[in-house]
Design a protein around this nucleic acid. Structure first.
Lengths: 130, 130
DNA sequence: TAAACATATGAATAATTGTTCATATGAAAA
DNA sequence: TTTTCATATGAACAATTATTCATATGTTTA
């Protein structure tokens, strides 16, 4: 296994050096997997919308469903994923269960995403390049 | 269409107020979609690994394929997605095409993701709670 | 020009995923 | 206890997606 990678693109020197740096800086497989998993959670507009609601208030499941015009079941399934990934937490109050944001990173990450998109928009309107 | 959402959970007052706030703060459909789309791009470990390589250097396709032990075709397909979403840019040099990071948000977003995961780990090891 | 090299891309396949539907759990009210 | 309300969850289905394979595009070298 683990066959030596074939030489390519002529520049064989850079190659060795690069591979060394990569070996040093690349996170472990499990961390890469967890990272991708985390971003995957943000990669669904229903979950994003849920998070935007929770930015404003602690909300119960049926209110979330009503606010987003979606089934209670659909919302519940997505809340489960958000909770498994520690993006939200829940609290029972009588029959209802209230959800809220779990930590500050959620806001920061979404803010960064919005900035990136904003810059895209600026570039597009300001400059019709390739 | 757009039927009035059914009352639920008794607390009908908060309901109205909450819906108002949501209407004001929730981004438009297209932005929500674009946001999810952006995060989706980060939500694949192959693309994450490509980005980690590009954190270190500007690299051509075949070097990426070699470094990550993957097919040239697989890498090329993923680079296409990264490029479409403005996370990387490319530059031709003879036969090769070199890819590099497109902007600083990429680093920030991944850093935030790592922090979130780190905190999870700390919580798990430090505190065996539910 | 033809051949070789580096990359891109369309089609096909396997795997993952979001929603719906039916139903289960768990708490409060009758 | 039985009913009702709020939420969770398993199974099924449709849609999306990552990789592979074959091949096309574009550049350099012979």
């Amino acid at each position: 296994m683990e066959k030596k990678e074939a030489m390519c693109c002529e520049h064989t020197q850079v190659h060795e050096e690069l591979l060394q740096i990569i070996r040093q800086t690349m996170p472990e497989e499990t961390e890469l997997y967890d990272l991708a998993e985390l971003f995957k959670v943000f990669g669904d507009s229903t979950r994003i919308r849920i998070l935007f609601v929770l930015f404003e208030a602690e909300v119960c499941v049926c209110d979330l469903a009503a606010a987003l015009h979606m089934t209670q079941s659909a919302i519940s399934h997505q809340l489960r994923i958000l909770k498994q990934n520690k993006l939200v937490r829940s609290r029972r109050e009588g029959k209802s269960i209230f959800y809220s944001l779990a930590d500050a990173h959620v806001r920061t990450m979404i803010a960064q995403g919005r900035e990136h998109i904003e810059e895209d928009r600026k570039q597009i309107t300001g400059n019709p390049a390739s």
